[in-house]
C-alpha cells in the first residue's frame, strides 16, 4: 500500500490560467533577465528618466546608486509595472511589459519580488500570515506545506521564533527581514531591493547585506539593489550602475567604480566620499521627486 502522501495540487486562480507563472522559463547565466531600452519617465512636468538603457543579467547582483531624488525607486517600480514608463521598453525574461495592463502583469510579477524601503508589511496580518500571503494568494491550499515554507523562510532571515508578532511590534531591521522572507517565499527569479539598509545600524545592515548575498548565492536570484550605502554596495554588487540626471552615468564592476573615482571623476568620487561641493547643495544630483 502506498503510504506516501500525494503532493497537494495548488488551486489555480482564474486569472493565472492562460499564462503559467514564475517557473515558466529558466534563466541562463549571461542572458539578460531584464532589459531596459531608452526609458523615459515624466512625473508631472519633471523628467525623471531621460533615456535609461541597461541590461541586468541572470544571476547577477546589480547595485543602483545615485543621489537622492534621481529616480532610483521610480526605476524599480517601473520594472514591476507599479509605475508606467512615459516611453521606452522594459523586457522581463524577454517579455515587453511596458504596455501591459494591470491584470496582464500578474505572470510577470510572480517572477519578480520586491523588498520595499519600509517593508510594506500588511499591518492587519502577523509575521507568519504576511510571509504566507503570496503562497496563499497564488493558490496554495496545503496548510502544512505553507507552514513549513514560512518557517524555512523566516529561519533563513533569522526570525524563526517571531511567527506570531504583529508588524507594529517589530524593529525596522526585523520588518525588512520579514519583508525579505515574504519576497523569497514564492521563489522569484529576480528580487528588487529598495534601500534595504536605510535607517539601520551598521550591524543589522551587515546582516541584511549577508542575507542578500546568501539569497543570490543559494537561489541564483537576479538582484537589483538600490542603496546609498557604499559599504553595502561593495559587499553585494557584481556590478554597480550610477544614475545621474535621469541617465546611466556609469556601469561597471565595483573595482572599475573605485578606479573611475581614483582617475579623477569628481561626481563618483564625491558620492563615494559623501562630499558636498557647496553648503546645502548636492554636487552629484539635483532634487527631483523620488
Amino acid at each position: 500500500m502506498n503510504a506516501q502522501k500525494k503532493p497537494s495540487k495548488p488551486k489555480q486562480s482564474k486569472q493565472s490560467k492562460p499564462v503559467p507563472a514564475a517557473e515558466a522559463k529558466p534563466c541562463s547565466p549571461g542572458e539578460p533577465f531584464i532589459e531596459v531600452i531608452d526609458l523615459h519617465k515624466m512625473i508631472g512636468t519633471q523628467e525623471i528618466h531621460r533615456g535609461v538603457s541597461i541590461s541586468i543579467y541572470c544571476g547577477e547582483t546589480l547595485v543602483l546608486l545615485g543621489a537622492s531624488g534621481e529616480g532610483k525607486s521610480v526605476f524599480l517600480k517601473q520594472l514591476l509595472g507599479l509605475m508606467t514608463p512615459t516611453s521606452g521598453t522594459i523586457k522581463i525574461a524577454g517579455q515587453d511589459i511596458s504596455h501591459l495592463k494591470e491584470r496582464e502583469m500578474a505572470p510577470v510579477r510572480k517572477k519578480v519580488g520586491i523588498l520595499f524601503q519600509n517593508g510594506a508589511l500588511f499591518d492587519s496580518l502577523d509575521v507568519a500570515e504576511n510571509v504566507a500571503f503570496p503562497l496563499r494568494e497564488h493558490g496554495e491550499r496545503d496548510n502544512a506545506l505553507i507552514r513549513r515554507r514560512v518557517q524555512e523562510c523566516l529561519d533563513a532571515v533569522g526570525l524563526g521564533k517571531h511567527l506570531h508578532k504583529m508588524p507594529d511590534n517589530l524593529s525596522g531591521g526585523m520588518r525588512k527581514r520579514v519583508a525579505l522572507a515574504r519576497a523569497m517565499i514564492s521563489n522569484p527569479q529576480c528580487l528588487l531591493y529598495d534601500e534595504p539598509t536605510a535607517g539601520l545600524d551598521p550591524i543589522v545592515s551587515d546582516s541584511i547585506n549577508k542575507l542578500i548575498r546568501a539569497v543570490q548565492r543559494d537561489f541564483h536570484v537576479t538582484s537589483i539593489v538600490v542603496t546609498h550605502d557604499m559599504k553595502s554596495a561593495y559587499h553585494i554588487a557584481d556590478r554597480i550602475a550610477y544614475l545621474r540626471h535621469g541617465q546611466i552615468y556609469f556601469i561597471g564592476t565595483p573595482d572599475e567604480f573605485r578606479q573611475r573615482a581614483a582617475d579623477g571623476d569628481m561626481v563618483i568620487d564625491d558620492f563615494i566620499e559623501g562630499r558636498s561641493r557647496e553648503n546645502g547643495v548636492k554636487p552629484a544630483g539635483e532634487d527631483t521627486p523620488a
Binding site: 514591476l80 507599479l82 502583469m105 505572470p107 510579477r109 519580488g113 500588511f122 514564492s186
Partner: peptide, 21 residues
C-alpha cells in the same frame, strides 16, 4: 493608509489586484 504605506504596491507586486482583494 495601505496606499500611503506602500501596502497596496506590495499587493500589486505579489500579483494581487487591489480591487480583487
Amino acid at each position: 493608509t495601505m496606499k500611503v504605506t506602500e501596502q497596496i504596491d506590495a499587493l500589486r507586486s505579489m500579483a494581487v489586484h487591489p480591487v480583487d482583494y
